[in-house]
Amino acid sequence: MENLISIFVNSVFVGNILLAYFLGMCSFLAVSKNLKTSLGLGIAVVFVLTITTPANWLIYRYLLAPGALAWAGLPEVDLSFLKLILFIAVIAGIVQMVEMVIDRYSQALYNALGVFLPLITVNCAVLGASLFMVERQYTFQETVVYGAGAGIGWMLAIVSMATIKMKLRYADVPEGLQGFGINMITTGLMAMAFMLFSGITM
């Protein structure tokens, strides 16, 4: 249990997928202009990460990892080189399915998240989380916690960025730094703030 809590805290703060590993920057910079949309996108990312990361874990564990096909009588087969192409296909497939399911059962949720779901397929944070999960050799429970934590960390970062940008409108930024430059430096300062949590040990 402590192990799970520590994975969660680490993936939200110190190992924040956006601020420490630079993943998911495109949508972070493009969509953080207003608070409401960034919250919507954030929730959609949490949702998708929590589903796709464990799904990819199952696929890796039972199809791709060295020796994973032992249940089919093929213990020597190692298909792990296929993980990139299969993970991206799984992510695209699941995002499409999630979109259809919520369209059918919850119109309100679809109206809130619908526009963001196709964007998420190409969000590198989603593929990144699956690849990190393989590299760090998480168990299934750890993977579920890590997927959710990575999503929440990403949401926290984009929501804070949106609010900071609202304040920045009234700031007197040097001319050459306006727009993209100041956004990067703000993100850098945010990354520094998130690193302060590295003192927490469980």
Partner: peptide, 11 residues
């Protein structure tokens, strides 16, 4: 650290 990269890009 990660913040260094953001700041270098900004500059």
């Amino acid at each position: 650290l990660a913040p260094g990269a953001f700041i270098v890009i900004g500059l």
